[in-house]
Amino acid sequence: MLEVKNLTVSFGSHTVVNNVSFSLGEKQWLMIVGPNGAGKSTIVNAISQGVPYRGSVYFSGKDLAGLKPSELARKVGVLSQRRFVSYSFTVEEVVRLGRYAYSSSIFSGRSDDDEAKIEEALEVTGMKPFRGKSVLTLSGGELQRTFLAQVFAQDPRLLILDEPMNHLDLVYQKQMLELIRRWVGENGRAVISVMHDLNHAWAYGTDALLLDKGRVVAWGKTADVLTNENLQSVYSMDVYDWMRSLLSRWSR
C-alpha cells in the first residue's frame, strides 16, 4: 500500500531524516520508534506532505506529492498530539469537518454517506453523548477522542498517529489503542504511529521501524526489530533488563 523510498528531509544544512525507505501493507500497523530527535515525527510529517522532502512517497501506486489537498485527505488522515482549541466549537462540528474532503463544492448539500460516517465515528469513539458539547469543556482524553472521531469520519486509507497517547491517562490510552486496532483490522487500511512507549509498540504493532539520528537502524516485523541488540545500540542501555525490572514489580 505505502511505499516510501529514499526519504530525506533537511532543514537548512541540518539533515533530520536521511535516506529512509520502507513499505507497508494493508491491515498493518507500523510503529516508528527511536530516541528523541531521531526524526520520527518528521517522517510522518513528510508522508502527510507537511514538510518538503526528497525521495518519493507512493500510496497504492500514486505519488502523494502530486495530489490535491482534498485527494490527499481521502487517502491519508492524521491525528497529532498537539491539541489546543481557541473557540467553543461543538464536538459534532469538529467531527463534521472530517468530511470536508468529500464535499465537491460549497453548494452540494450533505450526503447520507457523510451523515452515516459521522454517526459511526461518534458511536465507536463513544463521543455520541458529547456531540453538542463545546470542545472547550472537554478533558484531554475526550478532546483526543473527538479528533479521533474526526479522522474516522474522514475515512482515510492510511491513518497517521503522531504520539497519540501523550497526556492521556491509562484508561484512555487503552481505549485509543483498542479502537485503532479494530479500525486497522478492516481491508484496505493501514496505520503508522510514532510511539515512545516500547510496550505499546510491542503489544499493538505488526511492524516496527527503529530510527536513530535520522537513519534506519532496523525495519521489519516488530519482534525482529525490537531486539535487545538493536535497542541497545540506539538507546545505549540494556532496555530488556530495565523493562523486566519494571515489570517484576507487578508479579508480586
Binding site: S48, G50, K68, P69, S70, E71, L72, A73, R74, G77, V78, S80, R82, F84, V85, S86, Y87, F89, E93, V94, L97, G98, Y100, A101, S103, I106, F147, Q150, V151, Q154
Partner: peptide
Amino acid sequence: LLYSRELNAFAIGEDNARHVGVNV
C-alpha cells in the same frame, strides 16, 4: 463568506485544516 467552512477548519487549527484536506 464562501470560505466559511475553511475558516472553521482554520479556527480549529491550521494543521487540522490541512489534514482534513483544506487547500491551506
